[in-house]
């Protein structure tokens, strides 16, 4: 953590210096050639304005999963995540066996089906990085590549990650994946490549462009299940907090006292 703060300090100066130039450049995000050919036209990309101020700890992003609504056999959230973050770009190397590849490909969100040993009750739920307030992955990372953003998102700075996989050892939720193979055709919004570790980042690019929710939440809603709610855990009026007030919920592995940003009801 200390490292990240230090780096922030280092960059502050640059940010101020370049802030004036920023505005002219915003349009570029809208697409190739747009600013050139159509000056004067107000441009927008899919997203609202990109963020120009550092993220602050006034918000803490989180998810609430209502397992009662999570449907058996549905994997809309998983597919949406794979699409949004380009995880489906990975292809199995030719000489690789299916089983082994299944264990090696990147997974940011997965469906888990549980049965209570005593009552036999079945529960379905999606598992992803729980965005711990006290993330073990960040504690153990030797280079500070694993870090927690001020807004509570835990992610990997792939410029610093050396691929030691210690964070994967330390994560109690098995939330992280290592990229085992060369990648091609990455998405602009989600740079990723061989030899680094990655995990759910609550669609951080959407956050920075001010979008309302994550890919998994949208997909779940589109299926009509509405099992996942996204929002700001620090805003008492956010949908997620309203829901948290309404439903009994808990953290997985509460005993570890990591204060996760992803909560579950009905488990």
């Amino acid at each position: 953590m200390g490292k990240a703060t230090e780096m922030n300090d280092k960059t502050d100066r640059t940010d101020q210096a370049i802030d004036s130039g920023r505005r002219e450049f915003i349009g570029v995000a809208a697409g190739v050639g747009a600013a050139m050919v159509a000056p004067g036209v107000i441009l927008h990309a899919v997203a609202a304005t990109p963020r120009s101020q550092p993220v602050s700890s006034d918000v803490r992003w989180g998810l609430l999963v209502d397992t009662a609504k999570c449907a058996d056999g549905c994997s809309a959230c998983v597919e949406a995540c794979n699409e949004e973050n380009g995880l489906n770009l990975q292809t199995k190397p030719e000489r690789e066996s299916d089983l082994k590849w299944d264990a090696q490909k990147s997974v940011w969100i997965r469906k888990v089906k549980l049965q209570d040993n005593q009552t036999g009750r079945i529960t379905n739920l999606p598992m992803m990085c729980q965005h711990c307030e006290h993330p073990p992955c960040v504690d153990v990372c030797p280079t500070g590549a694993s870090f927690k953003r001020a807004d509570g998102i835990v992610m990997v700075d792939r410029h610093l990650c050396i691929g030691c996989r210690y964070c994967m050892m330390a994560c109690p939720y098995k939330a992280r994946s290592f990229i085992h193979d060369e990648l091609q055709g990455q998405l602009t919004a989600v740079p990723r490549g061989k030899g680094c570790v990655e995990s759910c980042n609550l669609c951080v690019h959407r956050r920075d462009y001010g979008e309302a929710s994550t890919a998994c939440v949208d997909a779940c809603a589109a299926e009509g299940h509405h099992a996942i709610v996204f929002g700001d855990l620090k805003d008492p009026n956010s949908p997620i907090n309203q829901k948290l007030r309404e439903l009994p919920s808990r953290q997985i592995r509460e005993d570890l006292e990591l204060n996760t940003g992803v909560r579950y009801s009905g488990v």
Binding site: R22, A29, P54, R149
Partner: peptide, 20 residues
């Protein structure tokens, strides 16, 4: 510099960006 402010602070709208 951009990479640090983007990855760690979420600043996307600056003048220098690889995407740009």
């Amino acid at each position: 510099h951009q990479r640090i402010s983007t990855v760690h602070q979420g600043i996307r709208g600056t003048k220098y960006s690889l995407e740009g």
